[in-house]
Design a protein around this nucleic acid. Structure first.
Lengths: 240, 240
DNA sequence: TTATGACCATTCGGACAATTCTGGTCAACA
DNA sequence: TGTTGACCAGAATTGTCCGAATGGTCATAA
Protein backbone atom coordinates (compact mmCIF):
# COMPACT_ATOMS: atom_id res chain seq x y z
CA UNK A 1 0.00 0.00 0.00
CA UNK A 2 1.69 3.14 -1.26
CA UNK A 3 5.26 1.97 -1.69
CA UNK A 4 7.54 4.68 -3.00
CA UNK A 5 8.84 4.04 -6.48
CA UNK A 6 12.30 5.43 -5.75
CA UNK A 7 15.32 3.21 -5.98
CA UNK A 8 16.11 3.20 -2.28
CA UNK A 9 12.44 2.88 -1.45
CA UNK A 10 12.11 -0.22 -3.56
CA UNK A 11 15.05 -1.82 -1.78
CA UNK A 12 13.39 -1.15 1.56
CA UNK A 13 10.14 -2.61 0.24
CA UNK A 14 11.93 -5.79 -0.71
CA UNK A 15 13.55 -5.97 2.70
CA UNK A 16 10.20 -5.42 4.38
CA UNK A 17 8.67 -8.27 2.41
CA UNK A 18 11.61 -10.52 3.16
CA UNK A 19 11.46 -9.66 6.84
CA UNK A 20 7.81 -10.60 7.14
CA UNK A 21 8.23 -13.85 5.25
CA UNK A 22 11.47 -14.95 6.89
CA UNK A 23 10.19 -14.43 10.41
CA UNK A 24 6.96 -16.23 9.61
CA UNK A 25 8.01 -19.09 7.37
CA UNK A 26 11.74 -19.25 7.94
CA UNK A 27 14.64 -18.84 5.55
CA UNK A 28 14.36 -22.23 3.87
CA UNK A 29 10.64 -22.17 3.24
CA UNK A 30 10.68 -18.66 1.82
CA UNK A 31 11.52 -18.55 -1.88
CA UNK A 32 12.82 -15.59 -3.77
CA UNK A 33 9.66 -15.79 -5.84
CA UNK A 34 7.61 -15.38 -2.65
CA UNK A 35 9.56 -12.30 -1.67
CA UNK A 36 9.16 -10.75 -5.11
CA UNK A 37 5.44 -11.42 -5.07
CA UNK A 38 5.01 -9.98 -1.60
CA UNK A 39 7.03 -6.93 -2.55
CA UNK A 40 5.12 -6.48 -5.79
CA UNK A 41 8.17 -6.70 -8.05
CA UNK A 42 9.51 -9.30 -10.43
CA UNK A 43 12.06 -11.81 -9.26
CA UNK A 44 14.73 -10.34 -11.48
CA UNK A 45 14.40 -7.00 -9.75
CA UNK A 46 15.58 -8.50 -6.51
CA UNK A 47 18.83 -9.51 -8.19
CA UNK A 48 19.32 -5.91 -9.26
CA UNK A 49 19.62 -4.97 -5.62
CA UNK A 50 21.13 -8.05 -4.02
CA UNK A 51 23.69 -10.52 -5.21
CA UNK A 52 21.99 -13.58 -3.83
CA UNK A 53 19.40 -14.75 -1.37
CA UNK A 54 22.14 -14.94 1.21
CA UNK A 55 23.19 -11.39 0.52
CA UNK A 56 19.59 -10.26 0.83
CA UNK A 57 19.36 -11.86 4.24
CA UNK A 58 22.66 -10.33 5.33
CA UNK A 59 21.40 -6.90 4.31
CA UNK A 60 18.19 -7.49 6.19
CA UNK A 61 20.05 -8.48 9.34
CA UNK A 62 22.26 -5.42 9.05
CA UNK A 63 19.23 -3.17 8.71
CA UNK A 64 17.44 -4.73 11.65
CA UNK A 65 20.55 -4.61 13.81
CA UNK A 66 20.85 -0.94 13.06
CA UNK A 67 17.23 -0.38 13.96
CA UNK A 68 17.54 -2.33 17.18
CA UNK A 69 20.60 -0.34 18.18
CA UNK A 70 18.90 2.97 17.43
CA UNK A 71 15.78 1.87 19.24
CA UNK A 72 17.75 0.90 22.34
CA UNK A 73 19.61 4.22 22.27
CA UNK A 74 16.29 6.04 22.09
CA UNK A 75 14.91 4.06 25.00
CA UNK A 76 18.01 4.75 27.06
CA UNK A 77 17.78 8.45 26.31
CA UNK A 78 14.15 8.50 27.31
CA UNK A 79 14.86 6.98 30.69
CA UNK A 80 15.67 9.58 33.38
CA UNK A 81 18.34 7.23 34.75
CA UNK A 82 20.41 7.93 31.64
CA UNK A 83 23.27 5.77 30.47
CA UNK A 84 24.04 3.13 33.09
CA UNK A 85 24.99 -0.48 32.90
CA UNK A 86 21.49 -1.48 33.80
CA UNK A 87 19.64 0.80 31.41
CA UNK A 88 21.96 -0.43 28.66
CA UNK A 89 21.25 -4.01 29.56
CA UNK A 90 17.54 -3.49 30.06
CA UNK A 91 16.82 -1.62 26.88
CA UNK A 92 19.28 -3.61 24.86
CA UNK A 93 17.27 -6.65 25.77
CA UNK A 94 13.94 -4.95 25.23
CA UNK A 95 14.83 -3.65 21.79
CA UNK A 96 16.01 -7.07 20.69
CA UNK A 97 13.01 -8.74 22.25
CA UNK A 98 10.77 -6.52 20.16
CA UNK A 99 12.50 -7.49 16.92
CA UNK A 100 11.59 -11.08 16.00
CA UNK A 101 14.15 -11.43 13.26
CA UNK A 102 17.17 -10.22 15.16
CA UNK A 103 16.07 -12.15 18.18
CA UNK A 104 16.02 -15.27 16.05
CA UNK A 105 19.51 -14.48 14.82
CA UNK A 106 20.82 -13.94 18.32
CA UNK A 107 19.42 -17.16 19.74
CA UNK A 108 20.27 -19.00 16.53
CA UNK A 109 16.71 -20.16 15.99
CA UNK A 110 16.97 -22.84 13.33
CA UNK A 111 13.27 -22.60 12.59
CA UNK A 112 13.78 -19.09 11.28
CA UNK A 113 17.36 -19.20 10.08
CA UNK A 114 17.20 -22.59 8.39
CA UNK A 115 20.34 -23.33 6.46
CA UNK A 116 21.63 -19.85 7.13
CA UNK A 117 22.88 -20.89 10.58
CA UNK A 118 25.99 -22.29 8.95
CA UNK A 119 26.76 -18.90 7.47
CA UNK A 120 26.38 -17.40 10.92
CA UNK A 121 29.16 -19.56 12.27
CA UNK A 122 31.64 -17.27 10.54
CA UNK A 123 30.28 -14.31 12.49
CA UNK A 124 31.21 -15.71 15.88
CA UNK A 125 29.30 -13.55 18.31
CA UNK A 126 28.45 -10.58 16.20
CA UNK A 127 25.27 -9.73 18.05
CA UNK A 128 27.11 -9.47 21.34
CA UNK A 129 28.76 -6.42 19.91
CA UNK A 130 25.50 -4.58 19.84
CA UNK A 131 25.79 -3.75 23.48
CA UNK A 132 27.92 -6.22 25.36
CA UNK A 133 31.53 -7.27 25.24
CA UNK A 134 34.44 -8.01 27.49
CA UNK A 135 36.21 -4.72 26.97
CA UNK A 136 32.96 -2.91 27.56
CA UNK A 137 32.64 -4.37 31.02
CA UNK A 138 36.26 -3.70 31.84
CA UNK A 139 35.93 -0.09 30.72
CA UNK A 140 32.92 0.36 32.94
CA UNK A 141 34.64 -1.30 35.85
CA UNK A 142 37.66 0.96 35.45
CA UNK A 143 35.37 3.98 35.47
CA UNK A 144 33.61 2.78 38.61
CA UNK A 145 30.31 2.37 36.82
CA UNK A 146 30.31 -1.33 37.68
CA UNK A 147 31.44 -2.60 41.05
CA UNK A 148 34.92 -3.92 40.52
CA UNK A 149 35.05 -6.67 43.12
CA UNK A 150 33.65 -9.11 40.57
CA UNK A 151 35.70 -11.20 38.17
CA UNK A 152 35.12 -9.51 34.78
CA UNK A 153 35.22 -12.76 32.82
CA UNK A 154 32.68 -14.41 35.05
CA UNK A 155 30.58 -11.28 35.00
CA UNK A 156 30.60 -11.24 31.22
CA UNK A 157 29.52 -14.85 31.18
CA UNK A 158 26.76 -14.17 33.65
CA UNK A 159 25.41 -11.14 31.84
CA UNK A 160 25.58 -12.81 28.45
CA UNK A 161 23.81 -15.90 29.73
CA UNK A 162 21.31 -13.72 31.52
CA UNK A 163 20.40 -11.87 28.38
CA UNK A 164 20.27 -15.06 26.40
CA UNK A 165 17.94 -16.57 28.96
CA UNK A 166 15.71 -13.53 28.85
CA UNK A 167 15.50 -13.72 25.08
CA UNK A 168 14.78 -17.43 24.97
CA UNK A 169 12.96 -17.49 28.27
CA UNK A 170 9.42 -17.27 27.01
CA UNK A 171 9.92 -20.66 25.45
CA UNK A 172 10.03 -21.95 29.01
CA UNK A 173 7.76 -19.52 30.79
CA UNK A 174 5.38 -17.74 28.43
CA UNK A 175 5.78 -13.99 28.53
CA UNK A 176 2.73 -12.00 27.60
CA UNK A 177 3.07 -8.79 25.69
CA UNK A 178 1.76 -6.74 28.59
CA UNK A 179 4.40 -7.39 31.20
CA UNK A 180 7.50 -6.74 29.15
CA UNK A 181 7.71 -3.48 31.04
CA UNK A 182 7.45 -5.21 34.39
CA UNK A 183 10.23 -7.61 33.48
CA UNK A 184 12.39 -4.75 32.29
CA UNK A 185 11.78 -2.96 35.54
CA UNK A 186 12.84 -5.99 37.58
CA UNK A 187 15.92 -6.52 35.47
CA UNK A 188 16.87 -2.90 35.84
CA UNK A 189 16.37 -2.81 39.61
CA UNK A 190 18.18 -6.09 40.04
CA UNK A 191 21.24 -4.98 38.14
CA UNK A 192 21.18 -1.50 39.65
CA UNK A 193 21.76 -2.79 43.15
CA UNK A 194 23.43 -6.00 42.04
CA UNK A 195 26.32 -4.83 39.93
CA UNK A 196 26.01 -1.05 39.91
CA UNK A 197 28.43 1.09 41.90
CA UNK A 198 27.78 0.79 45.62
CA UNK A 199 27.98 4.40 46.67
CA UNK A 200 27.78 7.43 44.41
CA UNK A 201 26.13 7.45 41.04
CA UNK A 202 29.05 8.16 38.75
CA UNK A 203 28.88 10.44 35.73
CA UNK A 204 27.44 8.67 32.74
CA UNK A 205 28.63 10.85 29.85
CA UNK A 206 31.74 8.71 29.73
CA UNK A 207 29.55 5.61 29.51
CA UNK A 208 27.69 7.07 26.57
CA UNK A 209 30.95 7.75 24.77
CA UNK A 210 32.13 4.18 25.24
CA UNK A 211 28.78 2.82 24.19
CA UNK A 212 28.83 4.68 20.90
CA UNK A 213 32.47 3.80 20.33
CA UNK A 214 31.86 0.09 20.74
CA UNK A 215 28.77 0.31 18.58
CA UNK A 216 30.84 1.94 15.85
CA UNK A 217 33.33 -0.89 16.09
CA UNK A 218 30.54 -3.38 15.70
CA UNK A 219 29.26 -1.56 12.63
CA UNK A 220 32.70 -1.58 11.07
CA UNK A 221 33.03 -5.28 11.78
CA UNK A 222 29.70 -6.01 10.21
CA UNK A 223 30.46 -3.90 7.18
CA UNK A 224 33.65 -5.90 6.69
CA UNK A 225 32.13 -9.36 7.10
CA UNK A 226 28.57 -8.60 6.18
CA UNK A 227 26.96 -8.00 2.83
CA UNK A 228 28.72 -6.72 -0.25
CA UNK A 229 27.31 -3.97 -2.39
CA UNK A 230 26.06 -5.61 -5.60
CA UNK A 231 26.74 -2.96 -8.19
CA UNK A 232 29.61 -0.53 -8.12
CA UNK A 233 32.23 -2.48 -6.19
CA UNK A 234 35.43 -3.54 -7.89
CA UNK A 235 34.67 -6.83 -9.63
CA UNK A 236 36.87 -9.88 -10.01
CA UNK A 237 37.01 -10.87 -6.35
CA UNK A 238 35.37 -14.22 -6.85
CA UNK A 239 36.92 -17.00 -4.84
CA UNK A 240 35.73 -20.34 -6.17
CA UNK B 1 33.54 -53.13 38.42
CA UNK B 2 32.24 -54.76 41.60
CA UNK B 3 28.50 -54.40 41.15
CA UNK B 4 26.55 -55.77 44.08
CA UNK B 5 24.35 -58.72 43.21
CA UNK B 6 21.46 -57.56 45.38
CA UNK B 7 18.14 -56.74 43.83
CA UNK B 8 18.29 -53.01 44.48
CA UNK B 9 21.93 -52.96 43.52
CA UNK B 10 21.20 -54.47 40.15
CA UNK B 11 18.54 -51.85 39.48
CA UNK B 12 21.04 -49.13 40.23
CA UNK B 13 23.58 -50.81 37.98
CA UNK B 14 21.09 -50.77 35.13
CA UNK B 15 20.33 -47.11 35.78
CA UNK B 16 24.03 -46.31 35.84
CA UNK B 17 24.52 -47.95 32.48
CA UNK B 18 21.49 -46.21 31.03
CA UNK B 19 22.66 -42.86 32.35
CA UNK B 20 26.06 -43.15 30.71
CA UNK B 21 24.63 -44.27 27.39
CA UNK B 22 21.74 -41.82 27.26
CA UNK B 23 23.88 -38.79 28.00
CA UNK B 24 26.47 -39.86 25.46
CA UNK B 25 24.44 -41.26 22.57
CA UNK B 26 20.96 -39.92 23.32
CA UNK B 27 17.70 -41.72 23.98
CA UNK B 28 16.99 -42.76 20.40
CA UNK B 29 20.41 -44.14 19.58
CA UNK B 30 20.67 -46.14 22.78
CA UNK B 31 19.04 -49.56 22.53
CA UNK B 32 17.83 -51.66 25.40
CA UNK B 33 20.32 -54.27 24.27
CA UNK B 34 23.11 -51.71 24.66
CA UNK B 35 22.01 -50.94 28.19
CA UNK B 36 21.85 -54.61 29.11
CA UNK B 37 25.30 -55.21 27.71
CA UNK B 38 26.79 -52.22 29.49
CA UNK B 39 25.14 -53.29 32.76
CA UNK B 40 26.28 -56.87 32.33
CA UNK B 41 22.80 -58.39 32.40
CA UNK B 42 20.50 -59.93 29.85
CA UNK B 43 17.92 -57.83 28.11
CA UNK B 44 15.04 -59.65 29.76
CA UNK B 45 16.34 -58.71 33.19
CA UNK B 46 15.73 -55.06 32.43
CA UNK B 47 12.07 -55.79 31.89
CA UNK B 48 11.91 -57.40 35.31
CA UNK B 49 12.71 -54.02 36.81
CA UNK B 50 11.12 -51.59 34.37
CA UNK B 51 7.95 -51.75 32.37
CA UNK B 52 9.39 -50.24 29.23
CA UNK B 53 12.24 -48.17 27.90
CA UNK B 54 10.19 -45.09 28.68
CA UNK B 55 9.65 -46.21 32.24
CA UNK B 56 13.36 -46.84 32.62
CA UNK B 57 14.11 -43.33 31.51
CA UNK B 58 11.49 -41.88 33.85
CA UNK B 59 13.05 -43.76 36.74
CA UNK B 60 16.47 -42.51 35.76
CA UNK B 61 15.26 -38.93 35.66
CA UNK B 62 13.65 -39.32 39.06
CA UNK B 63 16.86 -40.69 40.52
CA UNK B 64 19.01 -37.96 39.06
CA UNK B 65 16.57 -35.27 40.17
CA UNK B 66 16.79 -36.64 43.67
CA UNK B 67 20.56 -36.64 43.53
CA UNK B 68 20.69 -33.09 42.21
CA UNK B 69 18.38 -31.91 44.95
CA UNK B 70 20.46 -33.61 47.64
CA UNK B 71 23.65 -32.27 46.15
CA UNK B 72 22.32 -28.73 46.13
CA UNK B 73 21.15 -29.06 49.73
CA UNK B 74 24.61 -30.25 50.72
CA UNK B 75 26.24 -27.34 48.93
CA UNK B 76 23.89 -24.89 50.61
CA UNK B 77 24.62 -26.37 54.01
CA UNK B 78 28.34 -26.15 53.39
CA UNK B 79 28.15 -22.44 52.59
CA UNK B 80 28.51 -20.22 55.67
CA UNK B 81 25.83 -17.94 54.25
CA UNK B 82 23.27 -20.65 54.92
CA UNK B 83 19.84 -20.80 53.30
CA UNK B 84 19.20 -17.63 51.36
CA UNK B 85 17.57 -16.92 48.07
CA UNK B 86 20.93 -16.52 46.43
CA UNK B 87 22.57 -19.63 47.84
CA UNK B 88 19.50 -21.59 46.79
CA UNK B 89 19.70 -20.16 43.31
CA UNK B 90 23.45 -20.49 43.04
CA UNK B 91 23.80 -24.07 44.20
CA UNK B 92 20.59 -25.14 42.54
CA UNK B 93 22.17 -24.05 39.30
CA UNK B 94 25.54 -25.56 40.08
CA UNK B 95 24.12 -28.94 41.02
CA UNK B 96 22.09 -29.10 37.83
CA UNK B 97 25.01 -27.87 35.77
CA UNK B 98 27.07 -30.76 37.10
CA UNK B 99 24.48 -33.35 36.08
CA UNK B 100 24.46 -33.74 32.30
CA UNK B 101 21.30 -35.78 32.11
CA UNK B 102 19.10 -33.59 34.23
CA UNK B 103 20.50 -30.53 32.55
CA UNK B 104 19.49 -32.00 29.22
CA UNK B 105 16.01 -32.62 30.55
CA UNK B 106 15.68 -29.12 31.89
CA UNK B 107 16.76 -27.41 28.71
CA UNK B 108 14.87 -29.99 26.64
CA UNK B 109 17.94 -30.99 24.67
CA UNK B 110 16.59 -32.98 21.75
CA UNK B 111 19.97 -34.50 21.06
CA UNK B 112 19.83 -36.32 24.36
CA UNK B 113 16.11 -36.75 24.85
CA UNK B 114 15.26 -37.76 21.29
CA UNK B 115 11.68 -38.86 20.93
CA UNK B 116 11.19 -38.60 24.67
CA UNK B 117 10.64 -34.84 24.45
CA UNK B 118 7.03 -35.55 23.51
CA UNK B 119 6.55 -37.44 26.74
CA UNK B 120 8.01 -34.50 28.62
CA UNK B 121 5.27 -32.23 27.35
CA UNK B 122 2.92 -33.84 29.85
CA UNK B 123 5.19 -32.77 32.69
CA UNK B 124 4.84 -29.04 32.03
CA UNK B 125 7.61 -27.52 34.07
CA UNK B 126 8.43 -30.27 36.47
CA UNK B 127 12.06 -29.34 36.87
CA UNK B 128 11.19 -25.88 38.04
CA UNK B 129 9.82 -27.52 41.12
CA UNK B 130 13.25 -28.63 42.15
CA UNK B 131 13.97 -25.25 43.63
CA UNK B 132 11.95 -22.52 42.02
CA UNK B 133 8.29 -21.73 41.82
CA UNK B 134 5.92 -18.84 42.13
CA UNK B 135 4.70 -19.65 45.61
CA UNK B 136 8.29 -20.06 46.72
CA UNK B 137 9.10 -16.51 45.75
CA UNK B 138 5.95 -15.15 47.35
CA UNK B 139 6.69 -17.00 50.58
CA UNK B 140 10.14 -15.53 50.67
CA UNK B 141 8.86 -12.07 49.91
CA UNK B 142 6.31 -12.32 52.69
CA UNK B 143 9.06 -13.32 55.10
CA UNK B 144 11.23 -10.41 54.03
CA UNK B 145 13.92 -12.70 52.61
CA UNK B 146 13.40 -11.16 49.19
CA UNK B 147 12.84 -7.46 48.72
CA UNK B 148 9.14 -7.03 48.16
CA UNK B 149 9.11 -3.97 45.95
CA UNK B 150 9.41 -6.21 42.90
CA UNK B 151 6.51 -7.73 40.98
CA UNK B 152 6.63 -11.43 41.95
CA UNK B 153 5.47 -12.67 38.55
CA UNK B 154 8.09 -10.66 36.74
CA UNK B 155 10.69 -11.74 39.28
CA UNK B 156 9.80 -15.38 38.74
CA UNK B 157 10.15 -14.92 35.02
CA UNK B 158 13.49 -13.19 35.42
CA UNK B 159 14.92 -15.79 37.76
CA UNK B 160 13.68 -18.69 35.66
CA UNK B 161 15.10 -17.18 32.50
CA UNK B 162 18.30 -16.36 34.30
CA UNK B 163 18.80 -19.93 35.40
CA UNK B 164 17.86 -21.21 31.97
CA UNK B 165 20.39 -18.89 30.42
CA UNK B 166 23.08 -20.04 32.81
CA UNK B 167 22.37 -23.67 32.00
CA UNK B 168 22.37 -23.17 28.25
CA UNK B 169 24.84 -20.31 28.31
CA UNK B 170 27.98 -22.24 27.55
CA UNK B 171 26.53 -22.95 24.13
CA UNK B 172 27.02 -19.24 23.47
CA UNK B 173 30.02 -18.46 25.61
CA UNK B 174 32.09 -21.54 26.40
CA UNK B 175 32.41 -22.12 30.13
CA UNK B 176 35.48 -24.01 31.24
CA UNK B 177 35.35 -26.38 34.15
CA UNK B 178 37.64 -24.22 36.23
CA UNK B 179 35.55 -21.10 36.56
CA UNK B 180 32.25 -22.62 37.55
CA UNK B 181 33.11 -21.40 41.01
CA UNK B 182 33.76 -17.88 39.79
CA UNK B 183 30.46 -17.75 37.97
CA UNK B 184 28.67 -19.07 41.02
CA UNK B 185 30.32 -16.41 43.10
CA UNK B 186 29.21 -13.65 40.76
CA UNK B 187 25.69 -14.98 40.60
CA UNK B 188 25.53 -15.17 44.36
CA UNK B 189 26.89 -11.65 44.89
CA UNK B 190 24.63 -10.23 42.21
CA UNK B 191 21.50 -11.70 43.68
CA UNK B 192 22.54 -10.96 47.26
CA UNK B 193 22.52 -7.23 46.68
CA UNK B 194 20.09 -7.36 43.79
CA UNK B 195 17.06 -9.07 45.26
CA UNK B 196 18.04 -9.85 48.83
CA UNK B 197 16.60 -7.85 51.70
CA UNK B 198 18.00 -4.35 51.81
CA UNK B 199 18.77 -3.99 55.47
CA UNK B 200 19.07 -6.80 57.98
CA UNK B 201 19.88 -10.38 57.14
CA UNK B 202 16.71 -12.17 58.18
CA UNK B 203 16.66 -15.57 59.87
CA UNK B 204 16.97 -18.39 57.40
CA UNK B 205 15.56 -21.34 59.33
CA UNK B 206 12.16 -20.43 57.96
CA UNK B 207 13.60 -20.48 54.46
CA UNK B 208 14.97 -23.96 54.98
CA UNK B 209 11.57 -25.18 56.12
CA UNK B 210 9.88 -23.79 53.03
CA UNK B 211 12.58 -25.19 50.80
CA UNK B 212 12.11 -28.73 52.10
CA UNK B 213 8.36 -28.36 51.98
CA UNK B 214 8.34 -27.36 48.35
CA UNK B 215 10.82 -30.07 47.53
CA UNK B 216 8.51 -32.62 49.14
CA UNK B 217 5.66 -31.33 47.01
CA UNK B 218 7.78 -31.75 43.92
CA UNK B 219 8.63 -35.30 44.90
CA UNK B 220 4.98 -36.12 45.41
CA UNK B 221 4.13 -34.65 42.04
CA UNK B 222 6.82 -36.65 40.34
CA UNK B 223 5.76 -39.84 42.07
CA UNK B 224 2.24 -39.28 40.79
CA UNK B 225 3.15 -38.47 37.19
CA UNK B 226 6.47 -40.20 36.99
CA UNK B 227 7.33 -43.86 36.69
CA UNK B 228 5.09 -46.66 37.85
CA UNK B 229 6.39 -49.53 39.91
CA UNK B 230 6.40 -52.57 37.61
CA UNK B 231 5.48 -55.38 39.95
CA UNK B 232 3.31 -55.07 43.00
CA UNK B 233 1.06 -52.19 42.07
CA UNK B 234 -2.65 -52.81 41.57
CA UNK B 235 -3.06 -53.96 37.98
CA UNK B 236 -5.83 -53.22 35.55
CA UNK B 237 -5.23 -49.50 35.10
CA UNK B 238 -4.47 -49.66 31.40
CA UNK B 239 -6.06 -46.92 29.37
CA UNK B 240 -5.87 -47.87 25.71
C1' DT C 1 11.94 -67.49 42.10
C1' DT C 2 14.82 -65.20 39.22
C1' DA C 3 17.37 -64.68 35.05
C1' DT C 4 18.17 -65.73 30.26
C1' DG C 5 18.29 -65.20 25.22
C1' DA C 6 15.87 -66.98 21.11
C1' DC C 7 11.92 -65.30 18.93
C1' DC C 8 8.23 -62.08 16.86
C1' DA C 9 5.70 -58.04 15.05
C1' DT C 10 6.72 -53.58 14.04
C1' DT C 11 9.53 -49.86 12.84
C1' DC C 12 13.51 -47.74 10.90
C1' DG C 13 16.42 -46.28 7.39
C1' DG C 14 19.22 -46.67 3.18
C1' DA C 15 18.73 -46.92 -1.98
C1' DC C 16 16.71 -45.55 -5.94
C1' DA C 17 13.83 -43.26 -9.40
C1' DA C 18 10.37 -39.99 -10.62
C1' DT C 19 9.06 -35.46 -9.98
C1' DT C 20 8.73 -30.90 -8.30
C1' DC C 21 10.92 -26.88 -6.78
C1' DT C 22 14.32 -23.11 -6.43
C1' DG C 23 18.12 -19.84 -6.96
C1' DG C 24 19.96 -17.49 -10.47
C1' DT C 25 20.45 -15.83 -15.63
C1' DC C 26 19.38 -13.20 -19.62
C1' DA C 27 17.26 -11.86 -23.97
C1' DA C 28 13.41 -9.03 -24.75
C1' DC C 29 10.84 -5.08 -23.45
C1' DA C 30 9.16 -0.38 -21.67
C1' DT D 1 18.11 2.76 -17.94
C1' DG D 2 15.38 0.01 -15.30
C1' DT D 3 12.23 -4.00 -15.26
C1' DT D 4 10.35 -8.29 -16.46
C1' DG D 5 9.30 -13.29 -16.53
C1' DA D 6 10.38 -17.41 -19.32
C1' DC D 7 14.04 -20.49 -18.96
C1' DC D 8 17.77 -23.68 -17.10
C1' DA D 9 20.68 -26.75 -14.27
C1' DG D 10 21.02 -28.52 -10.03
C1' DA D 11 18.95 -29.49 -5.59
C1' DA D 12 15.35 -30.99 -2.78
C1' DT D 13 11.19 -33.73 -2.20
C1' DT D 14 8.17 -37.62 -2.56
C1' DG D 15 7.09 -42.40 -2.92
C1' DT D 16 8.45 -47.15 -2.78
C1' DC D 17 10.76 -51.10 -1.72
C1' DC D 18 13.24 -54.24 1.34
C1' DG D 19 16.52 -55.90 4.56
C1' DA D 20 18.28 -54.77 9.17
C1' DA D 21 17.38 -53.35 13.69
C1' DT D 22 14.52 -52.65 17.84
C1' DG D 23 11.27 -52.92 21.75
C1' DG D 24 9.06 -56.25 24.03
C1' DT D 25 7.53 -61.42 25.18
C1' DC D 26 7.89 -65.93 26.98
C1' DA D 27 9.24 -70.80 27.19
C1' DT D 28 13.18 -72.61 29.23
C1' DA D 29 16.97 -73.03 32.47
C1' DA D 30 19.48 -72.26 36.81
Amino acid sequence: MGEPATNAGREQTILDAASALFTHYGYDKTTVEDIAQQAGVAKGTIYLHFRSKDDLFSALIAREAHRVAERSFALIDADPEGVTIYTIFRYGWQAMQENPLLRAVYVRDRRVLGDYVRRLASLPQFSQMVSLSGEFIQHFQRLGLIRNDLDPDALLYVLTSFRYGLLVGDAVVPLSRTNVEAVGEVVSRLLASGIGPQGDRAKSEEGLRILREIYAKGLEFMRANGRQVPKDSNPGSETT
